[in-house]
Design a protein around this nucleic acid. Sequence first.
DNA 1: CCGACAATGCAACAAAGTTGCATCACAAAG
DNA 2: CTTTGTGATGCAACTTTGTTGCATTGTCGG
Lengths: 161, 161
Amino acid sequence: MDAALHESPARMLARAGIEATPLRLAVVGAMAGAGRALPAGDILALVRRLRPANRVTLYRILDLLVEKGLARRHSAGDRAQRYCLEPGTAGAPHGHAYCVRCGAMQCLPQGAGLADVAALGAGLAMDVLSVEVRIDGVCAACRESKGRPAGAAVDGDPGNS
Amino acid sequence: MDAALHESPARMLARAGIEATPLRLAVVGAMAGAGRALPAGDILALVRRLRPANRVTLYRILDLLVEKGLARRHSAGDRAQRYCLEPGTAGAPHGHAYCVRCGAMQCLPQGAGLADVAALGAGLAMDVLSVEVRIDGVCAACRESKGRPAGAAVDGDPGNS
DNA sequence: CCGACAATGCAACAAAGTTGCATCACAAAG
DNA sequence: CTTTGTGATGCAACTTTGTTGCATTGTCGG
Ligand SMILES: [Mn+2]
Ligand SMILES: [Mn+2]
Ligand SMILES: [Zn+2]
Ligand SMILES: [Zn+2]
């Protein structure tokens, strides 16, 4: 996609008040421009194309990114949490489309359809913190390829740590 | 709550084409009238007030209920899936309000705020199967009690199996 | 060089769910 | 009444995903 639209990983970390380290830059780089929310395992595989990386450290970095507001954590139908970068400008939430076949979780354009869900939360006798909207289904790629799941996962074998 | 509003567990199973067994009746009974989506662990604890029950069998029963359309499985912010009975009449989806503090997941009234989310799914190059809407926040009970979480869990010790 | 302090790595652990296989219950057949 | 088949249940081991405690490394101010 159009790389010019994206801030550099270094700037993103700076904006969130997180000290830049090689691993953190690699993690943010892996998530940037994906256009979808990735499970920790996929992010780890992507980062390991560039450098060795420890599983636990990755989880700690992801926790930090979420805590500092740079990333969001989303639950899908399966057991793994997905992480996607907050769209640059603000904390406006966005929904996701989850393929129950291949596990891909596409980020949807901001604001789409979420307005009245947020309104719904307002009447709830609850301090609303966030709103999760997920559309489950079978993605176009998986609908075609009847056989194996379409974009099943990031390649690259396991191993290190 | 008003028990007269609820179908009997036996009837629910019959309607879904599931053979009734004592355990299955107990499971459906535990879920019925809860008004919220319960994690498997809570359902197990409730069932065990009545009879011994095996963890694996419970998971198999829950899978069966979901497969036959009698129950729905929902993911929350934590690692445990929640299960709630489909409201009697139809497959109309409903959203949930999840308390990040005590883990309670309240079922919201049907239709509330989900109309345009469903519409959003229609434009998606994806075979839409279902729509998940979850409002995360801190429930009223937890907001008051600053100390320990409010409705933390179903009581009853672990043990059996 | 020295100590402080954050980042990383490693091993063990934990929670939730799954798998394979043994057993049980019960009904139909002989 | 006994045999035999089938689905439901139980049990142990395992997998996946994430977490915790603690050791090690690296960096920066003095
Ligand atoms: Mn996203
Ligand atoms: Mn519900
Ligand atoms: Zn797919
Ligand atoms: Zn609560």
